[in-house]
Simulated scan of single mutants.
Amino acid sequence: MRWTWILFAIITADAAPVNNGEQAACKSPIQRKAWHNLTKEEKKSYIDAEKCLMSLPAKLGLTGARTRFDEFQKIHVLHTPLIHGVGAFLPYHRYYIQAHETALRTECHYAGAQPYWDEARDAGNFSKSILLDPETGFGGDGVGPNKCIADGPFKDYVNSIGPGENITDHCIDRQINDCMSEGAAQQNVDACMKMKTFESAWNCMEAMPHSSGHSGINGQMMNVFSSPGDPLFYLHHAYLDRIWWQWQSKNLSSRLTEVTGRNQGGFFFPVSSNGTILGPFSRGDISGCDPFPGFPGGPGGPGGFPGFPGFPPPQNGPWVKIDGDPANITTLGHVINVEGSIPNVTIKDVMNIQGDVLCYEYI
């Protein structure tokens, strides 16, 4: 554990010691860039690093995981019921992406930062995104009965985690849905930026644009548990983290300490009782979209949302105690557990992306 802390400190910040022995705040943040703006060499470097994680043997002892890439997916599976539809949704995924970035940099000799997918550029047209390019991207849509991706650098990867909580060997599958990707429109992002409280902003972001990145890619990405099995997951959630940071930056004096919400959720994203996705959407009303045939609540599908495969049921049972929280409410003391991939921290530690623990910026 001591060496884990040392590596983590080296890779996350150019921080200088201060007189009291504590780590100083971030001085030279690494730059997270949009995939659209990376050079071919930068894109190749990132993809090679992700393939490296797919080749390294698992080391955390998590059931079903064969590789380091699988382990990150398994971490998400284990924590799914407590990191969606809850106050920790944004902080947890911020640190989870940090854990993935740290592994790329410490274990796979990656010199860059975690890129993000600027999804608003591709809203309504995911199928034509440069991220799906077979040569300089992540490969395209799924084909055949199992909707396996057929080109690109990850087409032959056999995933051992998922679907859902299952442990089975399967391909990375996609069903690109341009209609559902309409929800990633900049107007919807702008609507979230106007929210005045953490609770309203988080609910807006988790509903849209978060849901559109998942449902626009579909397949593996649409499974609330095992969605990190598609490498696009990390660029999608880096983008969501960027949006949250933009919202925080509008009033840092208060928004670096503002968090609330319950600790047990139940759905992939906030929905109404009849299955309608919540949010103030000025464009990208996806109510007429059919994510795939028979989708509950969609055209041709049985009404309602509960019971959709891959979505955990509402958590109405006994509250699960979260370290750092005195009750079923998210506080700054809430402990974020990433199963030893990097040291556990509290939500307070990750509220600032240029603080004592995190050290990056979005450009």
Rank of each mutant, 00 (worst) to 15 (best):
E22C: 09
I329A: 09
G64L: 13
E42M: 02
G279F: 03
A58L: 03
N337R: 09
G303W: 02
I6V: 15
F305W: 11
G139L: 03
R255G: 06
D190L: 00
N146E: 15
M208V: 10
V345L: 00
G298E: 00
Q175L: 14
R68S: 15
D156Q: 04
G64P: 12
S55E: 14
G294A: 04
P309Q: 05
I10Y: 12
H334K: 05
F225R: 04
M193K: 12
S129M: 11
T102E: 11
M54K: 08
Q187H: 10
K348I: 06
G219D: 10
G112W: 07
P293E: 02
G265K: 06
I286D: 00
L90K: 05
P57A: 01
G298R: 02
S254A: 10
T67P: 12
A327C: 09
D285V: 11
E42N: 01
E165D: 11
Q187N: 14
E101D: 12
A65K: 10
M222T: 06
P299L: 01
I47A: 00
I83W: 04
A327G: 07
F198Q: 08
I167S: 00
H84K: 15
W5D: 14
L78G: 08
N352Y: 05
S45G: 02
N263S: 10
G213C: 07
I30L: 10
G298F: 00
G261D: 03
